[in-house]
Write a protein that binds this DNA or RNA. Structure first.
Lengths: 198, 198
DNA sequence: CAGATTAATCAACACCCTGTTGATTATCTT
DNA sequence: AAGATAATCAACAGGGTGTTGATTAATCTG
């Protein structure tokens, strides 16, 4: 479908996006201007508008590309071994790939998930995670639960996001495997029990 | 110490802050300009600069005032009945007051914690919550834990924040008591067990 | 209440960033 | 090598910023 033949556009677009990510991390999203990006990327400002409408268009395209990558991982491993995996007790086999993927795109992810980033992206990511969780807990809405299911999901999903954010803040010291295990344990046994405090 | 005698400054400052909160909710923080605020608040733009340096100064002062209120509640009930309360098994007595306080300031809180708000405020609030939790789990750093304590805290604190955000997104349908119970249960028993899914 | 004080208004200023245009140059594709 | 297309450059009006000095209006104090 999409053929990005010309190497020139590819070069400038990646230069723009990389610079953008760095600047968000440095100055914070709202303080980054188009002029900033083009200056630091050593590109004419007019060229920017050949590819993006404005700063927010650039942000959205960057975010959506990243999310597409995550969805790809999710689908890839959803279809394969859903039957083998006994659900909930051990980390989902996709989890490690997921953390690895985030690490690959660490500059941008760190920037937008950080305190000077984009809260809208946090939301998009949470929605994606929520969708994945709901797929595994279909019985959830039918039973009478002591706690509303939407709050359960909000709890787990936000906790998940927080762990990811903490991972990035700390400089990605833990391996993707460790992260997947940690998260799975806290979700299943509860944070206090998993931490040995109960 | 601080005497805010003149009624004029009080009026304009509250007009500015109220308008600011509404505009953040409507347009998103980065799209709100000083001109926006003063226009909607029916105030001369020059007057704005008599009280705040710029948009970010206004944001910070608004946030810090709110956080001070939360700290006040925390301290108030920390000192009083720490000995009576058996810790961790039932909601902290301050929790309900805390949720009530957030509800009182719902316009601003909803705005800054929403997807078009300020991720920096999320951080500030998380740090405050983390401090409170650490006070109750002093033994935490000494033991050998199966999961690093900072990740435990990141998990619980982010889950907490997510529940609050979900409460606001849903229009504050649940009462502060319900919220306090819900949160306490999910933290202690783990989200899955508390939800009846284990 | 009257006078002094201080806040709010208003107009004007230079400055910076935006988004667009038309013409020119450089680069890539075939 | 020729044609196509991307990048550059200069210029533009428009809009927001932060500051200034002068004027008007509201509040506080005695």
């Amino acid at each position: 479908m999409e053929m990005k033949k010309d190497r020139r556009v590819l070069r400038t677009k990646t230069k723009i996006r990389d610079t953008f990510a760095k600047l968000i991390d440095q100055k914070g999203l709202d303080r980054v201007t188009v002029k900033d990006v083009t200056d630091h990327a050593d590109i004419n400002r007019g060229t920017f508008y050949l590819h993006y409408q404005d700063k927010y268009d650039l942000l959205e395209q960057s975010e959506d590309d990243l999310l597409e990558g995550i969805k790809r991982i999710a689908k890839e491993l959803d279809t394969v071994n859903m039957k083998k995996w006994d659900s909930r007790r051990e980390p989902h086999p996709a989890a490690e790939k997921y953390f690895s993927y985030l690490k690959e795109h660490s500059v941008f992810v760190k920037a937008v998930l950080g305190p000077k980033g984009d809260p809208g992206f946090q939301n998009k990511l949470k929605n994606l995670i929520a969708t994945q969780i709901k797929m595994r807990l279909t019985d959830l809405s039918k039973e009478k639960l002591p706690i509303p299911s939407d709050y359960l999901i909000a709890y787990v999903v936000s906790a998940h996001l927080g762990v990811v954010q903490h991972w990035f803040e700390g400089g990605l010291k833990e391996s993707p495997e460790e992260m997947a295990d940690m998260l799975s344990n806290m979700n299943f046994y509860g944070p206090l029990a998993a931490g040995g405090l109960k």
